[in-house]
Amino acid sequence: MSGSAGRTGASKPGRRRRRQRGRRLNTVDETSAGGLVMDADRQNAALIGRLDRHGKLLWSLPKGHIEDGETVEQTAMREVREETGISARVLQPLGTIDYWFVAERRRVHKTVHHFLLEATGGELSDEDIEVTEVAWVPVTELETTLAYSDERRLVRKAKELFDREQRAAEGAPE
């Protein structure tokens, strides 16, 4: 009798069988808004830091869920104020990011509407329970500070908008 005789359904050595659990995750859609909030001189941006599940601080743009009756612009301003302590006004849309993740036995498709915002008042505060730290970060450091590539892409777009505005103000052709 060979070493594998008598074993029915045995897998080949070195392979693991994938278990089918018979449970499917419910898929839900979530929509949020937030953005890149700049100081009046457009030299610094307010970022939030959150700890990931490994205890690493990840810096990102403030954002959060849309409440009933709110527009995406109103949500962006409210979330910036709640998460950073900074009051801001929306200047223009920057773009939309969507991504998937699993949480609480649900598969979540998240869409986040981002805006370029300008600070109008307030002081940095990390009182929001979801935020570990907040900071004004120089625009020149955003690409190396932000944890997520999609947010870094939005920052590049904002820099292009600033450059265009600057050229227009100086009377240079675009």
Rank of each mutant, 00 (worst) to 15 (best):
M1H: 04
A5Y: 00
A5S: 07
G6K: 00
T8F: 01
A10T: 02
S11N: 05
P13D: 04
G14Q: 08
R15S: 11
R17L: 02
R18L: 09
R19P: 10
R23M: 14
R24Q: 15
N26D: 15
N26I: 14
T27W: 09
V28A: 09
D29T: 11
D29I: 11
D29S: 12
E30S: 11
M38W: 12
M38K: 08
D39Y: 11
D39H: 09
D39S: 10
A40E: 12
R42S: 14
Q43I: 09
N44H: 11
I48M: 13
I48E: 15
G49Q: 12
R50S: 15
L51P: 03
D52A: 14
D52H: 14
D52C: 12
K56N: 11
K56C: 10
K56L: 13
L58N: 15
S60H: 06
L61G: 05
L61M: 10
L61T: 07
L61H: 06
G64P: 00
H65W: 01
E67T: 08
E67L: 15
E70S: 07
T71W: 15
T71C: 14
T71E: 13
V72S: 15
E73D: 13
Q74H: 10
T75G: 08
A76H: 07
M77R: 15
R78Q: 09
R78W: 10
R81A: 15
E83V: 13
T84Y: 12
G85W: 10
G85V: 12
S87P: 04
A88D: 07
L91K: 13
Q92M: 11
Q92S: 10
P93Y: 04
L94K: 03
T96A: 07
D98M: 07
Y99H: 14
F101R: 11
A103Y: 06
A103W: 04
A103F: 05
E104T: 08
R105E: 13
R106K: 09
R106T: 03
R107Y: 02
R107W: 01
H109M: 00
K110E: 03
V112H: 00
H113W: 02
H114F: 12
F115T: 01
E118R: 11
E118W: 02
G122I: 04
G122Y: 02
L124P: 05
E127Q: 13
D128P: 02
V131C: 04
E133A: 09
V134L: 03
A135V: 06
W136C: 00
V137F: 00
P138F: 08
E141D: 14
E143Y: 03
E143N: 09
T144Q: 12
L146G: 04
L146P: 07
A147G: 06
A147H: 14
Y148Q: 05
Y148S: 02
E151P: 12
E151N: 03
E151R: 08
R152W: 03
L154N: 03
L154A: 02
A158D: 04
E160C: 05
L161F: 12
D163Q: 10
E165Y: 03
E165N: 07
Q166P: 00
R167E: 08
A168K: 11
E170L: 14
G171V: 12
P173I: 06
